[in-house]
Simulated assay, not measured.
Amino acid sequence: MRYIIIGAGAVGGTIGGRLAQAGREVVLVARGAHLTALRERGLRLVTPDGDHTHRLTAVDGPGALGELRADDVLVLAVKTQDTTAALEDWAHRPVAGGSTAGERLPLLCAQNGVENERMALRRFRRVLGVCVWLPSTYLEPGLVSAGGAPLTGILHLGTYPAGGKDPAQEAIAADLGEAHFDAPLPGDVMRWKYAKLLGNLANALEAVTGPFSDEDQLALLDAAREEGARVLTAAGLDFASEDEMRAVRGDRVEQRALPGAPRGGGSSWQSLVRGTGTIEADYLNGEIVLLGRLHGVPTPVNATLAALANDSARTGRQPGALSAREVRERIERAR
């Protein structure tokens, strides 16, 4: 199989680099300065077992590849706000032997949030969700770091909607298993992704107030997650428990310091540091807000965090522009 990584940033770059290191054929899809660096210098992937440079095919989109292959696996690793554009680029592309990518090829949504799979199913017949537990950082063009050890990450993989079995999923899981990942195949991957969504409610808070360093931030995080759990329960959505997640993770993905590589925060923090102008808060905290409105549950904490994160991205603010006290005051005004 050939893996086409659509969005070769922190998550996509790590998955692509590790698969390449395991001897799999990989294509990286990127843009701007990152694409230039990948073409000129290769992908530099820094991990606890070394500093690796992978010189892989790097393209700006499907047009550069021509007809896709029947054994291609598409790994969608862009932020959710970029999902629709990526799907439109790839779904209609012809595949050798007939038909299109949307009809024939598996698409893995290796992304935060729970909306990507639903968006993808409009254009792709074979959609697989991926619950991504993968500490990684992308702040500099061409450079991705991933400090997890002994495993680089855990990638729960499963068909969307639940109940099916894609013919390629076991082979994909085996390839990931040889590339420093564990890839469990749960019957309902979205149950794990909803649990991860609750964890990702921290992203906006970290982006707005900076890395967690005091009790005020932790209290706000607890409030956001408790609000999120109430909303998911009201919506009738099941999610994996903390005990289940601890049992799966154990000490298999411990974050380690990496010499020569920046240690960053979460994906939203990284978006502000890079000044991308967009952030995924509408699909993390905003997912809780949407479900809360649909099911009559107030969500002042997550609504405020989403609004502040979006404002930070639009105005170019760096992480830590607001204190936890200022955020709390804004939440109180929103109640």
Rank of each mutant, 00 (worst) to 15 (best):
M1E: 08
I5L: 08
T14G: 03
G17R: 04
A20L: 12
Q21Y: 06
V26Q: 03
V27C: 09
V29N: 02
L35I: 09
R39V: 09
G42E: 08
T47D: 12
H54W: 08
R55Y: 00
A58N: 07
D60A: 14
G63T: 07
L68M: 07
L74G: 11
L74S: 10
A77C: 15
V78E: 08
Q81T: 14
A91D: 03
A91N: 02
P94V: 01
G98S: 04
S99I: 00
T100Y: 04
R104C: 06
P106E: 06
C109P: 05
C109D: 05
G113M: 10
L121H: 12
R123P: 04
C131A: 15
V132E: 03
L134P: 01
L134F: 05
S136D: 05
T137V: 15
E140D: 13
G142P: 07
V144M: 07
P150A: 13
L151Y: 10
I154V: 15
L155Y: 09
T159K: 05
T159L: 12
A162S: 15
G164K: 10
Q169W: 04
E170P: 04
A173Q: 11
A174Q: 14
D175Q: 13
L176H: 11
G177A: 14
D182F: 11
L185S: 11
G187P: 00
D188P: 00
R191V: 07
K193P: 02
A195D: 01
E206D: 11
F212H: 08
F212A: 09
S213E: 11
D216S: 07
A219C: 06
L221P: 00
D222H: 03
E226L: 02
V231F: 02
A234N: 06
L237V: 14
S241D: 02
A247I: 03
R252H: 11
V253M: 08
R263W: 10
S271T: 14
I279K: 11
A281N: 04
L284C: 05
G296E: 05
A309W: 13
S312Q: 09
A313W: 02
R314F: 12
P319V: 14
G320L: 10
A324R: 03
E329Q: 05
E332I: 00
